[in-house]
Design a protein around this nucleic acid. Structure first.
Lengths: 116, 116
DNA sequence: TTCGATGTTTGACGAACATCGAACAAGCTA
DNA sequence: TAGCTTGTTCGATGTTCGTCAAACATCGAA
């Protein structure tokens, strides 16, 4: 995360976004963020190794789907909902609703809020 | 196409659909079909070899995005819009609108309607 | 029946991807 | 300072993907 590259809203690519969402782990992560709240990485429970989770979060960030913020050694991630709605009007909400309704991206869940 | 397998509406997977759409050629093909009209394969112009186009159309069919019909030696393909709307309510329309607005999947276009 | 048109399948290839463990870097904290 | 926590990066590995050419299958027409 030293060079956390976040693409501009106007540069978001539809193909790239869809491709990034076309993975069960990543779609599950996005589902967790659908409520708009920022989450610490420590809360994210996924059935993959730490390095793999890091990779998926990077793919989401590179596609412009999430925004990552570092605070000390902790990292926090949030959905770029406004930017996505600007670039792809009306697309995100029904997509997230379907993901929720169909329980897509199972295996990803929310753990304990991390202690200081 | 001898065993043209079309998944049931209730079996459509969101991850699989998004993954299938996360390719420029396939998204371009879906764009061409967005008007709901059935198209003959001979009309589909894509910057890939014939076999590659066949492969992409198969991926779309397997994901349940399109329906393929054979008539003699000709094949026709159409978007399963009603089925997709049933399974993923409200998702398709804004997605196709964004694809159109951003000219996603460029390189795919419509050629001459084939002669008998 | 032979020919041509239309798709499909197969085999092959490199590129990209998902995954892991291990090593590394950065920043708190004791 | 030393140590702990947190996340990144680095190989390495096996898989999937996109692509093509070539061979094959199928159907209609001459």
């Amino acid at each position: 995360m030293r060079d956390a590259h976040h693409p501009e809203t106007r540069d978001l690519s539809l193909v790239e976004v869809l491709s990034a969402l076309g993975d069960p782990v990543r779609l599950g992560l996005v589902r967790l963020l659908a409520d708009g709240r920022e989450r610490g990485w420590g809360q994210l429970r996924a059935p993959v190794a730490k390095s793999t989770l890091s990779h998926h979060l990077r793919v989401l960030r590179d596609a412009g789907i999430t925004r990552t913020r570092q605070e000390g050694t902790r990292c926090y991630v949030a959905l770029r909902r406004a930017d996505l709605d600007t670039r792809f009007p009306g697309m995100l909400a029904p997509l997230l609703e379907s993901a929720e309704a169909l329980d897509a991206g199972a295996g990803v869940s929310l753990g304990e809020p991390e202690k200081p």
